[in-house]
């Protein structure tokens, strides 16, 4: 009786990684994401302050929004003044900017990149397309709302949002981080099954590990 319970717990804890071949299964972890609670309040406040002051964003132009990231990165707007810097590797980034619509092919990469980012991680969704489909609401190949696939912290509307809006979005995100409200990573872990269900519903050829830690 006791043994069976453990099995069930394990089953729930571990992911099947059904999309992978047997050979690949050994290469990837089958662990689920875990909720990591914040540490003691004073420490956490300090850490949150540091997190807000040093935002490394993933250099992944998922849609047209990437075009306004360039002015923001360069001299006219100079986002480095605010501690924001682009970072090419998802492992080291903490902000994911969804630059507008995400096509079916891209959402797969978005999910993968998002999962590879180390928590705490934040998502800024740019443009109408991420909120309710935007002008591609009837397209067969773009998703309509990004918050069904990954947790989103900040929405910036516009088509495209100007660099200034984006900057304002970053400011809002900083406020949110400092207030300790930006815990998309834990939200993702808590509702993991729901997110996974939504993702798998649209990504028909799921040939990657269930969770890319």
């Amino acid at each position: 009786m006791e043994k069976k319970d453990i099995n069930e717990v394990e089953k729930q804890m571990n992911l099947a990684n059904d999309g992978l071949s047997d050979k690949e299964k050994t290469l990837f972890s089958d662990a689920r994401p875990q909720v990591v609670p914040p540490v003691h309040k004073i420490f956490e406040n300090f850490r949150n302050w540091a997190r807000a002051q040093s935002l490394w964003m993933l250099a992944f132009g998922t849609g047209c929004g990437a075009i306004e990231l360039r002015p923001l990165m360069t001299s006219r707007y100079d986002m480095s003044r605010y501690g924001i810097a682009p970072r090419p590797s998802p492992r080291q980034s903490s902000v994911f900017i969804i630059g507008g619509y995400a096509s079916l092919k891209t959402i797969k990469r978005i999910v993968r990149s998002y999962e590879q980012m180390q928590g705490p991680k934040f998502v800024i969704a740019l443009g109408s397309c991420t909120i309710n489909g935007g002008m591609y609401y009837d397209s067969y190949y773009t998703i309509n709302r990004i918050d069904h696939y990954i947790p989103v912290d900040i929405y910036v509307t516009g088509c495209m949002p100007r660099p200034e809006s984006l900057l304002a979005g970053f400011n809002k995100l900083k406020e949110r981080i400092r207030a300790g409200r930006a815990d998309g990573m834990n939200k993702y872990a808590e509702n993991f099954d729901w997110y996974k269900k939504n993702q798998k519903r649209i990504i028909k050829d799921w040939n990657m590990p269930d969770y890319n830690w």
Binding site: V36, R47, A50, S54, S75, R81, G119
Partner: peptide, 22 residues
């Protein structure tokens, strides 16, 4: 042609990286 990050930015980056939860 810009101002650039504050001089202490590398320190904050290190604190931030250390503060990662995973």
């Amino acid at each position: 042609g810009r101002y650039g990050p504050p001089v202490w930015q590398p320190f904050i980056d290190i604190i931030k990286t250390h503060a990662k939860r995973v």
